[in-house]
């Protein structure tokens, strides 16, 4: 019976529910939501790919292929923290549900080669890159935009 006061109080006061889809709540600024990429700023330093705890970012500086497994991202925000040029920005909007497995792929300007890799590595890389590009062309349905949300 000790709960009685609480439930009568609840009954007489307004409900505590946030009517979510009808009333959108603005999340705090610090909230780690979906990313925004300004891919033109990317210098292909591979910092984000190295520091990512999920290892969901793949970068190939030679072809300019920038790929992220959206499905595996844990939204820890490390990539945004370590990006030296600020091309990865975290917004405070959470990512909406999706109905198809997706992958995020960008093409950016390849970095000029500094060192010449060995013969073997070069052929290996070429093969990988070719398959990656083929896959990517098959998967892509829309051209990538310079500024885009994941």
């Amino acid at each position: 019976m000790l709960m009685g006061r609480t439930i009568i109080k609840n009954l007489l006061h307004k409900y505590a529910t946030r009517l979510h889809p009808y009333e959108q709540r603005i999340l705090p600024d610090k909230f780690r939501g979906r990313f925004r990429f300004i891919i033109d700023k990317c210098i292909m330093c591979r910092n984000c790919a190295v520091k990512c705890p999920t290892k969901c970012i793949t970068i190939d500086p030679e072809t300019g292929l920038w790929e992220r497994e959206v499905m595996a991202c844990v939204y820890c925000g490390v990539c945004a923290d370590v990006c030296p040029t600020g091309c990865i920005i975290m917004t405070n909007v959470y990512r909406p549900p999706i109905t198809e497995p997706t992958k995020l792929t960008f093409m950016c300007t390849p970095r000029p080669k500094k060192k010449k890799p060995t013969e073997e590595a070069q052929t290996m890389n070429k093969k990988d890159v070719e398959t990656a590009i083929k896959q990517q062309q098959a998967e892509r349905t829309a051209p990538s935009l310079p500024v885009s949300e994941e």
Binding site: H13, Y15, T17
Partner: peptide, 11 residues
């Protein structure tokens, strides 16, 4: 509905 309101829900 009333149970929900007693629990401070919309119901």
């Amino acid at each position: 509905k009333i149970t929900a309101r007693m629990q401070s829900r919309f119901g």
